[in-house]
């Protein structure tokens, strides 16, 4: 059951999206997240859907895998859509019964919300998590945040912490599963009883997990010190991030494609505009 967690899952590949410099990908992702909220008309939302399809094709990742990644947000998307459907008011109600009025604006808003949430998840995963290794991601983050070093923010240390945390996610999942099984074999019951009982039942899992995490952390620290790790100062990299002309070309193309969302809003369209 715990194995289903696909936090930061990376799909290996060699598509243009995979090869794009991670720093630029991070910038693109931020731009994308902002620009998504500029979409206002039916045309721009339709464009958003096309854009997602295009990005998927570009990444070479199977559509099935991407749909699977969307599963966890379906509930949130549908929930917010339904709320919007009932609570948006407009001029002329489309359906009206008892005290509930459904306006066309509500329907549009609900549909747009679903598209927006889905696009948000697909876009960010395609641009970053699915096509970038965790290592590249933290390197990019470190590089982008490095100006903060001037005001004494320990950027390297933060990035290293993130790298380590990501590295140990699968290890911890495996360990948790092992401990759960071992306690089950001693008759631990995690599924019955009231809330308090269930919370108490977690102690036999949490204590060993904490103990082993702490001892693992101290072993790791020792191992790092043995290899003369002293933090970010004077540290060189085996893999240097280097921007090429090709990176810039892809970056600019994608950025202008994203920016087009704003421009498309200005194309007049008879219906479906929500302010």
């Amino acid at each position: 059951m715990l194995k289903d967690i696909t936090l930061g899952q990376y799909f290996p590949g060699s598509s243009p999206l995979h090869r794009l410099d991670p720093r630029l990908k991070l910038v693109l992702m931020i731009a994308f997240v902002v620009l998504i909220f500029f979409a206002k008309t039916l045309l721009s939302f339709a464009y958003l859907v096309v854009l997602m399809a295009g990005l998927t094709a570009l990444s070479g990742i199977r559509v099935k895998a991407i749909l699977k990644g969307l599963k966890p947000v379906i509930f949130i998307a549908v929930f917010t859509a339904v709320i919007n459907l009932f609570w948006t008011t407009g001029e002329v109600p489309l359906v009206s019964f008892w005290r509930i009025n459904i306006y066309p604006e509500g329907i549009w808003r609900a549909v747009y919300l679903i598209i927006r949430i889905m696009a948000l998840v697909t876009g960010t995963s395609l641009l970053l998590t699915y096509t970038t290794t965790p290592m590249d991601m933290t390197d990019a983050l470190e590089a982008l945040l490095s100006p903060l070093k001037k005001i004494r923010v320990p950027v390297h240390e933060f990035a290293m912490m993130m790298t380590l945390a990501l590295r140990f996610v699968p290890t911890l999942i495996e360990e948790t599963e092992k401990i759960i099984n071992a306690q089950k074999a001693r008759g631990a019951d995690f599924e019955s009883g009231n809330l308090l009982r269930r919370a108490k039942a977690l102690i036999p899992i949490l204590v060993p997990l904490f103990v082993s995490s702490f001892s693992r952390a101290s072993e790791l620290a020792t191992a790092m010190e043995c290899r003369c790790y002293t933090g970010g100062e004077g540290r060189t990299r085996m893999k240097q991030l280097r921007l090429t002309g090709k990176d810039w070309v892809i970056f600019l193309i994608l950025l202008s494609l994203f920016a087009a969302i704003v421009l498309i809003n200005f194309i007049p369209f008879p219906w479906g505009t929500v302010l």
Partner: peptide, 24 residues
């Protein structure tokens, strides 16, 4: 008894840990 079972110990004393199974 799993491999490396010492990772499952959690109680305050060894006695209480051994008693976990029978108590359940």
């Amino acid at each position: 008894v799993f491999q490396y079972p010492e990772y499952q110990l959690f109680e305050e004393t060894a006695r209480r840990d051994i008693a976990f199974g029978p108590r359940n």
